[in-house]
């Protein structure tokens, strides 16, 4: 018998147990809590059936958080991969490309909370960005006001995450042998065409993984919202800026009675969004593997 067949259970069990006991089982417990009204251990748990879900569907604030999360995943994803693809067109040959790749990745190693502190100075009504706009005779904008704050957060997110996906995709592109591009140049392909017909197809598998990775990460977005709005104060972030994770955090921490049932119901609803988005992503990115022979 092969080694790995003999070792099958001993090798698998630790991961399986940790995952089942500490991840899957709590998820099921979370589903159970979502059907009750409960303030946590030490308080009474009362059965509510689907009432938490019904209440959430009626709750405009949750609806905003829900939509925001969705928009963030899709619009943010489109921007991030758009920029990533554009970078891939030029980054193969550009002078200083190693340097660019490193610096673009930099926000990833910086805590988002730290970035948030700078945001106030940059995006405040009297902040740096508006000052620069005024030099050019443009109107200052209320960047962090209710109408624009969400877009600014998406912008911040794109700024801080794109470097990661550039790094991922470029390392896949690096593996493509140079002679392929040389041949393409000989037949007169432009840089865009080289990207479109060589780089992209050959890195498509990595893109598929990256896209799923983005979807999973985007649904957890939490700290950047705090960083751009009310981090450090007792106030809750303004409603137009909230994601589901933020809304849930507000409900869990609650200055009054924590409503864990409602918070758990939000979690279950996020699960649905995630599942839908992952299936969509898989469908969009599915295609036959292209290989160089």
């Amino acid at each position: 018998m092969k080694t790995y067949e003999r070792a099958f259970w001993p090798f698998l069990l630790p991961a399986l147990l940790v995952y089942t006991l500490l991840f899957v089982a709590p998820s099921l417990f979370g589903f159970w809590v979502s059907l009750t009204r409960w303030s946590g251990p030490g308080s009474e748990m009362t059965w509510r059936g689907l009432d938490n879900y019904v209440a959430l569907l009626h709750n405009e604030v949750f609806a905003t958080a829900f939509t925001n999360t969705f928009v963030m995943a899709i619009a943010g994803g489109a921007l991030i991969f758009g920029f990533t693809f554009l970078s891939m067109v030029v980054l193969r040959q550009l002078k200083g490309r190693a340097f660019i790749r490193s610096v673009v990745f930099l926000p990833l190693v910086i805590s988002i909370i730290a970035i948030g502190a700078a945001v106030g100075f940059l995006l405040n009504p009297e902040g740096a960005l508006n000052t620069v706009l005024e030099w050019f005779g443009l109107d200052p904008q209320p960047w962090l006001g209710p109408e624009m704050v969400f877009r600014c957060i998406v912008g911040g997110l794109v700024w801080s995450s794109t470097g990661f996906y550039v790094a991922l995709m470029m390392s896949a592109a690096d593996a493509i042998p140079a002679h392929v591009y040389e041949d393409a140049q000989l037949i007169g392909a432009t840089k865009w065409e080289q990207f479109r017909h060589i780089t992209l197809p050959l890195t498509w598998d990595v893109f598929a993984v990256s896209a799923v990775l983005w979807v999973v990460n985007s649904l957890k977005i939490f700290d950047i919202v705090l960083a751009f709005t009310t981090a450090g104060t007792a106030a809750a972030p303004p409603i137009p800026a909230r994601t589901i994770a933020v809304q849930q955090y507000i409900v869990v921490k609650g200055s009054g009675l924590p409503e864990l049932g409602s918070a758990a119901a939000m979690g279950v609803m996020t699960l649905l969004v995630t599942a839908v988005l992952i299936v969509l992503t898989r469908r969009i990115t599915r295609r036959d593997r292209v290989e160089l022979s």
Partner: peptide
């Protein structure tokens, strides 16, 4: 109230 006061990053206004 000051222009775009809904867009301040606390505590910008009280500091100002």
């Amino acid at each position: 109230l000051q222009r775009d006061f809904m867009a301040t990053k606390f505590p910008a206004a009280q500091n100002a």
